[in-house]
């Protein structure tokens, strides 16, 4: 399943001087998965699209990633 964020736990050794950052995440925006954009995709209403920066929900990638989409912060 597509998720806009992936997380992992980097190794933290017993002699590392600083406390662990815990889980580390990186973004995987939708352009990595879409391929050639298919025609007739669902569109945002025009005002919303101007605000969001894209016409298509399929390309919309809110940041910071909302919790319901898998953000750990």
């Amino acid at each position: 399943m597509y998720t806009p964020i992936k997380c992992y736990q980097p190794y933290h050794g017993p002699f590392d001087p600083c406390p662990s950052r815990g889980t580390v995440c990186y973004q995987t925006p939708p352009n990595l998965y879409l391929g050639f954009q298919p025609p007739n995709l669902q569109q945002f209403p025009i005002q919303e699209a101007l605000y969001k920066g894209t016409l298509w929900p399929a390309l919309y990638d809110p940041y910071p990633t909302p919790l319901e989409k898998g953000a750990k912060r």
Partner: peptide, 29 residues
Amino acid sequence: INMSDDPCLNDSLKFLREREVVHSQRFRE
């Protein structure tokens, strides 16, 4: 964005970030 706590400025930065996503998509196409 991670270092800024100015909500209005972040609003514009989020728009610019989304444009990068769209541009990357178009170059991939």
